[in-house]
């Protein structure tokens, strides 16, 4: 019989072992020569991190500590919190929407990489190079050709009655593609944004909290249209038979999302940080992006894998050119329109 005393001892032993295990797992490593804060999917098993970080360490001999504060917003938030005595040298994952906030907080410092000329000018988000872009993609509506015969051809088409409850969006308060879609409507409709969202409301099945759940609903067949990236089509082409899920190109043009990394102001390992930014625009890093981060590399001339044939870059790019406050205003206007006020 398992007596009480044994039970209590086993409990104590288990607790002691777990304390030891945890304590050993979080011994502070301070021998790092470069501290990078990155968002979770960058660092995850199937993200670019496990490919590019060892490659960087091998190429430069610099030992990297990769810290994952959460999503891109949390990466920036952590950097802002630590502004007085920064622990991070580089933050990875700041996009066009987060950049104004990062600049306003003054957490980034300028460094123009040696290969800066290889980045097309339309992808350069900050002409003082406080943020160096590394990849990009276009927002688009993905179409499930099995479930819907005639896809929409424009944002305006989405409001037609035949698409009632056929569109999955992401919530702009909690997700980047969600915010991207609001920006898209702002770019096309300007002041007519609220009116557009009122007309769009019947078509929306739901607004999911993040891209993952929304896209999951889409592939589960809940609705045949979802907001995503044009590169999603390449993903399907890589792992599945191409053709069922297609990226729709709208004549009005598509907004793009550009992701970049920057050196933290007052970074403790400035030289190593600069080396990383340079490495980021090298072929090894850039060519890893399409199949790990599922985005286009920013560097021109990097060969794309064959699956990217399914992912055409839209002919026309649009931008609402909104400041951070204006974008917040657009989100509010869109949500208010949905709530019928």
């Amino acid at each position: 019989m398992f007596t009480r005393t044994h039970g209590a001892r086993a409990l104590l032993a288990a607790a002691a072992i777990s304390i030891a295990a945890i304590a050993s797992s979080c011994v502070q490593k301070d021998d790092a020569q470069l501290v990078i804060y990155a968002y979770d999917s960058f660092a995850s098993e199937w993200g670019p991190g496990p490919v590019v970080i060892p490659a960087f360490e091998k190429a430069t001999g610099i030992k990297v500590e990769l810290v994952v504060p959460g999503d891109a917003g949390q990466v920036l938030a952590r950097a802002v919190d630590e502004k007085a005595s920064p622990l991070a040298d580089v933050i990875v994952g700041v996009d066009g929407n987060l950049l104004p906030k990062a600049l306003a907080a003054g957490v980034l410092s300028a460094y123009e990489p040696k290969a800066s000329a290889s980045v097309p000018p339309e992808l350069v988000l900050d002409d003082r190079w406080r943020l160096t872009p590394y990849d990009w993609s276009s927002f688009c509506v993905m179409w499930d050709s099995e479930k819907l015969a005639a896809p929409p051809e424009s944002l305006e088409d989405l409001t037609r009655p035949e698409y009632e409850r056929k569109l999955i969006l992401m919530d702009p308060r909690t997700s980047t593609p969600g915010l991207g879609f609001v920006e898209w409507t702002a770019a096309i409709y300007g002041d007519g944004l609220a009116d557009y969202w009122k007309r769009l409301a019947p078509s929306i099945l739901t607004m999911s909290p993040g891209w993952d759940t929304g896209y999951g609903l889409f592939t589960a067949g809940e609705a045949p249209l979802v907001i995503s990236y044009t590169t999603s089509a390449a993903y399907h082409a890589e792992y599945e038979t191409a053709g069922r899920y297609r990226a729709l190109e709208f004549a009005e043009g598509h907004p793009i999302q550009v992701e970049g990394a920057g050196i933290v102001s007052g970074a403790r390992h400035r030289k190593a940080a600069e080396a990383f930014i340079d490495f980021m625009l090298g072929d090894e890093f850039q060519s890893a992006l399409p199949l790990t981060n599922w985005m286009y590399p920013v560097k021109e001339g990097v060969a794309l894998p064959p699956s990217y044939d399914a992912s055409r870059k839209p002919a026309k790019t649009v931008s609402a050119g909104l400041g951070p406050d204006e974008l917040d205003g657009a989100v509010r206007a869109a949500l208010d329109a949905l709530q019928g006020r």
Binding site: G73, L169, T174, P209, T213, L335
Partner: peptide, 27 residues
């Protein structure tokens, strides 16, 4: 959080959602 956003219909939000938005997106 998740269930409300996913099933609540477009644009609804609980205080928790607004809190998250204010902290993470509007800083």
């Amino acid at each position: 959080f998740v269930i409300v956003l996913l099933f609540g219909g477009p644009g609804v939000g609980t205080p928790e959602v607004e809190l998250y938005r204010a902290a993470r997106f509007e800083f």
